[in-house]
């Protein structure tokens, strides 16, 4: 479980998050709504342990992650994965992208191959596997970015506008898979999306970011 407790975050001089309190639990799909610029992405990145909050605590299974030594923090980070709104793929092939997270975790070749086979099958990516990342369409890139995150089987998966570039068929495949991962594998999934219809079909809870911003602006 990831819990954000009294989180404040500012860019330069502007507070983007003000006293935010929220918890993301395993097996639950949460949808974050809110207008553009309301801090959804920042919230996701703080929860994804990418951004260190200006104030407040980010607890992973009850432990404040930012007070942990580097190695322990890395272990926590490996259970929480954030996927950017604009898919950012690494240079190389789709296979290189899919295997990146597994390689840095030190998985052996057989295990990597097994995991790649499984995700390729689930998201119907076989025809793309040996394509260069730069040759993919926006939708294909987004699908690969989602696959690259799912393949490492995080306990908490944070998806920023995951359906933005996907066609109807791919949205259906992804949402079915996300539901399966949440229900059967206990993955906690957080979606920041404008696609309210699809998200409401998927989400167990809907949270408006403006309603969880507790504090007033401070200097």
């Amino acid at each position: 479980m990831i819990e954000l407790r009294g989180i404040w975050f500012k860019y330069d001089k502007k507070w983007v998050l003000r006293d935010v309190n929220i918890a993301f639990k395993r097996g639950i799909i949460v949808m974050i709504t809110g207008p553009n610029g309301s801090g959804k992405t920042t919230l996701m990145k703080v929860a994804g342990l990418i951004y260190r909050p200006t104030r407040g605590e980010v607890l992973y299974n009850g432990v404040n992650v930012w007070s942990l030594p580097k190695q322990k923090r890395l272990e926590a980070r490996r259970h929480v994965v954030y996927v950017h709104e604009t898919p950012i793929l690494l240079r190389g092939t789709v296979r290189d992208n899919l295997t990146y997270g597994l390689k840095i975790r030190g998985y052996n070749e057989d295990r990597i191959e097994e995991e790649v086979e499984s995700i390729v099958e689930s998201l119907r990516l076989r025809s793309l596997l040996d394509k260069k990342a730069g040759e993919l369409s926006a939708g294909q890139s987004q699908l690969v970015a989602i696959a690259r995150a799912l393949i490492v089987k995080p306990q908490i998966l944070l998806l920023d506008e995951p359906f933005a570039h996907l066609d109807r068929e791919k949205r259906s495949i992804v949402s079915t898979l996300l539901r399966e991962y949440a229900r059967e594998r206990g993955m906690g999934i957080v979606l920041a999306t404008h696609d309210e219809y699809l998200a409401e079909q998927l989400a167990d809870n809907v949270v408006n970011i403006e309603e969880i911003q507790g504090g007033q602006n401070i200097g």
């Binding site: 990418i50 980070r77 490996r78 994965v81 950017h84 975790r105």
Partner: peptide
């Protein structure tokens, strides 16, 4: 950021 988010 991508690398960190994937557990690097």
């Amino acid at each position: 950021e991508v690398a960190v988010s994937l557990g690097a």
